[in-house]
Design a protein around this nucleic acid. Structure first.
Length: 283
DNA sequence: CGCCTTTGACCAGCGC
DNA sequence: GCGCTGGTCAAAGGCG
């Protein structure tokens, strides 16, 4: 896979040196906020997901939470990362510069020029003329960690699972999801931290080209509740995502004491909030 | 019947 | 070149 990524989560989390890794690999603030090269990103997490305009903008709410930009000492349990430098230029649905943001090879170079990226993309296409014109073309990625007992965090979009793989150095499989909306090729990977099974690592790839399909309904309420959580907890990112266990009978997950609701967002979310511990996973 | 998950197979990239 | 690993495909089956 993209080994040049060099940021394998198992490697990061599996050796209890995540803090070392973070401190040595990233500016600490990049773990939590969307700052980029010393500037605050104009886009937030929800916008990265394509949640924008018409939506109640959890991101806006999050932005209002003063601690959103708080770095490491923020005791929230959800960490937002930019493991592959994907925050360099998160593609937005309205942005024409998606292609220039698709590179994730930060191990090769921290800063890339557009020309270089274009050349790289050309090279990739040339190297793989077979069957994979779309394949292996990575969108901007970003990952975040959520302390949750359920793997799938409801984010207002509908996802279809298209694969699951056992991950090296981890006893937990990694699940691959794709946005079910036509023409939206956003993907996400969900895996559980090997070192701390209570932590779910979700990696998003790409950008939604549509508003959240379920936002008008339950997610709206969930979003409102999220905002409450965000401001109440004073942890901007901690409220993101609603832990929801869909179709529990089909998921091979251990029995849980919470989050059993298969359709409603809020109950499990409330439960998740309670399980959010005010401690850092870096410790 | 439609949507979804499951799961084995296949493909591509990388290190040795 | 080979093996390992991650990522994707697609058929099969389940569920509402």
């Amino acid at each position: 896979m993209d080994r040049k990524e060099g940021l394998n989560m198992e490697d990061v989390l599996g050796n209890s040196s995540f803090s070392d890794y973070i401190s040595s690999s990233f500016p600490l603030q990049s773990v939590f906020d969307f700052s980029f090269e010393g500037e605050m990103m104009p886009l937030g997490f929800m916008e990265l997901l394509g949640v924008q305009d018409s939506n109640p903008s959890l991101f806006d709410m999050a932005q209002q939470a003063p601690s959103v930009t708080q770095p490491l000492n923020n005791p929230c349990s959800t960490k937002i990362e930019s493991p592959a430098g994907v925050l360099n230029q998160p593609a937005t649905p309205n942005s024409p510069s998606i292609s220039s943001a698709s590179s994730e090879d930060v191990d090769d170079e921290t800063v890339k020029v557009d020309d270089q990226e274009k050349d790289q993309q050309k090279t990739k296409k040339q190297l793989k003329p077979k069957k994979t014109n779309q394949k292996r073309q990575r969108e901007a990625r970003f990952a975040f960690m959520t302390k949750s007992e359920v793997d799938h965090l409801e984010d207002g979009y509908r996802w279809r699972k298209y694969g699951q793989k056992a991950v090296k150095n981890s006893s937990f499989p990694r699940s691959y999801y794709r946005c079910t909306t036509i023409s939206c090729n956003v993907k996400k990977r969900v895996e559980r931290s090997f070192s701390d099974p209570s932590i779910v690592i979700t990696t998003y790839e790409g950008q939604h080209t549509h508003p959240s399909p379920i936002m008008p309904r339950s997610s709206l309420a969930a979003g409102a509740q999220l905002s409450l959580d965000i401001s109440a907890a004073g942890a901007g990112a901690s409220g993101f995502g609603t832990a929801v266990q869909r179709t529990p009978s089909k998921y091979k997950q251990p029995p849980l004491n919470f989050g059993q609701n298969g359709s409603s967002l809020n109950p499990s979310f409330v439960h998740e909030r309670r399980f959010l511990q005010l401690r850092s996973v870096f410790t």
